[in-house]
Computed example of a mutant assay.
Amino acid sequence: MEQKGKMVPSSSVPPEILWSSLPLILKQFPVKTLLKLRCVSKVWCSIIDDPDFIRLHHKHSHTRPDGVSIVLMNKDGGDYQLYSVDPEGGPLVDLLEVPSLFVSKYYSSVYEPNYADTIQLQSVNGLVCIQNRIWNPSTRQRIEIPPRKESTTTFLDVPTYLLGFDPFSDKYKILNKQVVVSIDGGGVEKRVEYQILTIGTNEWREIDSVPNEFVPYHRNHRSCCIEGVIYSFACISDEDMILAFELTREEFRIIPLPPEVDHVDCCDFYLIEVRERLGLINGAMTTISILEDSEKIVWMTQNSIFPDFILKYYEGSKFTPIGAIHTEILLCVDDWNTQVKRFFYYDLESKRLRRVDAVPNLLDIFQYGIYYTKHVESLFRLKRFYFVLIDQS
């Protein structure tokens, strides 16, 4: 634009202010768009790849309508098929097919029983863990976890991998739980060994903080990571409890279950994050306990979550907590009355239940077990790591 024969700048905003505000603008976009915007210029690329911006974008993704999704996994023959769906309803989106852990080149065919109780689908800080694979659904990249150190004198049962994120070091870590059976002089010793791997390295490290008499094992393999702590179930001296692994210090500690919890039915309990705290919910949705203080072990338990008429209608049905979104807990309900799977939100503050109608009946699509996790998208790029990288188109 010209004025009195002179050129007038199209913007009066100083360039330094414009560039400083660019991250606040870019954080509004989904990962797919940002990956394309990396090509605009070197400056844009450096901003989008900056670890501080990746953290800023991931934090903001919790509040963006398209930043949160439900990732579902279904076993299809020997492989696993992954899908996503909008938490407020919509069609299933085909994401990825993952070969089973037990046909991996790293593991032999000695694992022949049914492993349904050891399989879990975890989403931690934007990454998804599926058995021995780490995957970022947003960037379409995945890596295969290298094999842990194994002894030639022991027989190893099926490994369990627990993904965690340490906010202090800004690193992802994988905790491996392995049941080890040693045969010595005709006797058989069964124990649980733990090893830790930091993503970006290729070496497992032994966890020395587990006492010899400490043999945690539980049929419930569910876990979650909150504020740098991986929580999982353990059974010690025939007593159910929660095992907390602090990723910064790489140490274990024991958290007793709330006294209101029926330990007999502990295998039907779920661990989820609720407002940056640990939530313990049973599959019947009759109680929910939130760990308000993890240091002093203070639980707050709420009984009779649903109205009686809801529990009576869905009597015998299974409630699967998927995750918390703001003050609401997303649930999948196996409705045995109508033979459909339904999604509900339960609001912890108003104690109201609302149904999500625009989700296809998963029982019409899947024939086998379905696993769920809440996923918040992230720009974290696995291609920086060199072991067994597979980029997905």
Rank of each mutant, 00 (worst) to 15 (best):
K36H: 10
L18V: 11
L127A: 09
Y194V: 05
W299N: 05
S232W: 00
L280S: 07
V93M: 10
V93L: 12
M285I: 05
E2D: 08
F233M: 05
D357A: 10
N74E: 10
L175W: 01
R148S: 14
K6G: 00
S61C: 08
L82R: 03
D76H: 11
H375M: 04
L18D: 06
S41R: 07
Y172A: 03
Q367P: 00
F385R: 01
S151V: 00
Q339C: 11
L331E: 04
P146A: 05
F168A: 14
T33A: 13
S232Q: 11
L163Y: 01
P99F: 03
N337P: 02
D293E: 11
T63F: 15
T287I: 15
I297N: 01
S223T: 11
I242G: 08
T201G: 05
C332L: 07
E251F: 02
V71F: 06
R342S: 13
Q339S: 14
M1T: 06
I174Q: 03
H58Q: 14
F319Q: 03
L24E: 14
D293N: 15
K341Q: 15
S12V: 08
E150C: 11
E144F: 00
Q120P: 00
F344E: 05
Y346K: 05
R253V: 01
G90R: 06
P91T: 08
L379Q: 09
R354D: 02
P307W: 01
G369R: 10
R222L: 14
W135D: 02
V98F: 05
L362M: 15
P23Y: 09
L379F: 04
K75Y: 02
S151P: 00
H221N: 10
T373G: 07
H218G: 02
E193N: 12
N125L: 00
D238Q: 11
G323K: 09
Q122L: 10
L56T: 10
P259N: 10
L156P: 00
N337E: 10
C45W: 00
S237M: 08
V340S: 12
F366A: 01
E251D: 14
F252P: 13
A324L: 04
D265L: 10
Q28A: 05
I254D: 07
I370S: 02
V274L: 14
E150A: 14
L175P: 05
Q339K: 09
G316A: 11
S304W: 01
H326R: 15
F366V: 06
G283Q: 10
M7F: 13
R253C: 09
L271W: 04
V110E: 13
G200M: 07
T201C: 06
F233H: 06
M241V: 11
I297W: 02
I174D: 06
H218M: 09
C235R: 12
F319I: 15
K296M: 12
R275V: 07
L18K: 05
Q302P: 00
I196K: 02
W336C: 08
T118P: 01
Q120D: 14
R277M: 14
V43Y: 06
I290F: 02
I254E: 15
I230G: 02
E250W: 01
E315H: 12
Y386C: 06
C235M: 11
K351L: 04
Q367L: 10
I145R: 03
R355K: 15
A358S: 15
Y345G: 04
N361R: 06
S138W: 01
C129R: 01
L163P: 14
I255G: 02
E349G: 03
Y194N: 12
K173M: 07
L243H: 04
H57K: 11
K312N: 12
T154P: 00
A234L: 05
L156D: 13
